[in-house]
Design a protein around this nucleic acid. Structure first.
Lengths: 254, 254
DNA sequence: AACACTGCGATTGTACACAATGGTTAGTGG
DNA sequence: CCACTAACCATTGTGTACAATCGCAGTGTT
């Protein structure tokens, strides 16, 4: 069997205060990251027991993490059939992007009103991290950090429901990008993020919204959603058949 | 002790297909309904064990239902402290309403484009049910049906993320209304709903959005800042489920 | 040969037992 | 009499055993 189970046994408890949700968060974050980095292909089955052994926790924890991922649309939970990595169809991707435009516009306007100097500084820091990731060639981390930038922006908007929704949308967007983006292109140009921060700092709502909308245009213009929709659709539809036969690209290391 | 537990043991299994999520849904729906009908006041503690006895299921099921309610913002889950009925602050209510305006505008525009004749018919039926509930004086059911109307409208918009977000917003709105609305006023006027359907059926986007925005205005103009208390005895709240010897009120959908 | 049915294996769904946490209260000292 | 400490108890968090379910394979029949 695959006996490479490992590192994170229970040492988090060695930390300081026993934050109860820590284990959940670790498992959630690792699976999410694995999906973004395409070490877990869409359609891959996520066995509770296997994940439990790998992370050194019981199925209870795994189940919660999977449930959370499912709620964010990154994982599909089929009753009595287990969980698989979601493989959003083109139509689903289109819906996510439509919703994001809506939300990003509102977030941008609110962020212009409410963003504090500290938050703006944090945003700039995140853009730096993002740039570093891409310069290191760490595409998965780049996608993730880019998403976290948009999430941070949502926090600046000071509207809890919008933040929550944005979290879900960003997660799904990240999955879509990982799945559909044409291979080599830098996807979420961090300089657009920088310009956006500048506009927010200048409290120029009109410009900020304009930049954000163009940013959205750029993101989904880089996806293969429109033209090659048919082939991608097929791939998505039959991805559950493709997972067993390809040892060349091992999704083993979760 | 309190031995009048479990009307709903496991007979659902006797039905047709064993939909596994049924028990979760039952518990979820009953707690949600109890909150809306103010049989559970904001701040009331929701003990896992007590609820498990009442519904005749183990804490596992209760926990999932509570988790789901928490994600929708209707229940607050405090680590190691248990769950309580959420008591949204005025600020939180304001944020929810802001988000709802945003979403309802988008939903209305999309519904005008995509609503089918069948969906419009269903919407009209829901308004009828809503009116019936109010004429019966069943305020809780009225609030719930009013929320379901808006949710149905979201479905007509054909955008899955928006539907999911709307579900959460409607839940929280219902809680806010139950908590803040001054007692006797009819709250979500169903005639406004009817006008809205008419505009949608006529494919008049501008009018529909206008009506929806006015509808939103009316809703939050009816709120005040007083709260009313309700029972915090879980057994009393769910007494209609506890029929040991009273078959008179068969809880049909259990 | 193709289809249907039944038994089997694997995996998820549920319940329960135990561990850990936090609030509460009683008891003691100032 | 009040404040502070410490042990208790109630409640949640986690792990695990058992049961139910689904897909698949093997076999028999048309």
């Amino acid at each position: 069997m695959n006996e490479q189970l490992q590192p994170l046994k229970k040492q988090p408890r060695a930390g300081k205060a026993g934050r109860s949700g820590t284990q959940d968060d670790i498992v959630y974050a690792h699976i999410f990251e694995a999906i973004l980095e395409q070490r877990l292909a869409p359609g891959t089955k996520l066995s509770e027991e296997a994940l439990g052994e790998i992370f050194g926790v019981s199925r209870t924890i795994i189940r919660r993490a999977l449930s959370r991922l499912a709620h964010e649309g990154v994982v599909l939970l089929r009753p009595n059939r287990g969980a698989v990595v979601a493989s959003p169809s083109v139509e689903e991707a289109r819906q996510v992007f439509m919703a994001r435009r809506l939300v990003e516009r509102a977030i941008t306007e609110l962020a212009v009103q409410h963003a504090t100097a500290e938050q703006i500084a944090e945003l700039r820091q995140m853009v730096n991290d993002e740039r570093d990731s891409f310069s290191r060639g760490d595409r998965g981390a780049g996608i993730r950090l880019s998403g976290e930038f948009h999430l941070k922006l949502a926090e600046a908007a000071k509207n809890a429901p919008l933040i929550s929704f944005q979290r879900s949308l960003v997660s799904q967007t990240s999955l879509i990008i990982a799945q559909y983006e044409s291979g080599n292109r830098s996807h979420c140009s961090y300089d657009e993020h920088t310009q956006l921060i500048d506009a927010i700092e200048a409290r120029n709502a009109e410009l900020a919204v304009d930049l954000m909308m163009h940013h959205m245009d750029h993101i989904d213009s880089k996806l293969n959603l429109d033209e090659e929709s048919a082939s991608d659709d097929l791939h998505a539809v039959f991805s559950h058949l493709l997972q067993t036969k390809k040892p060349g690209r091992s999704p083993a290391k979760i």
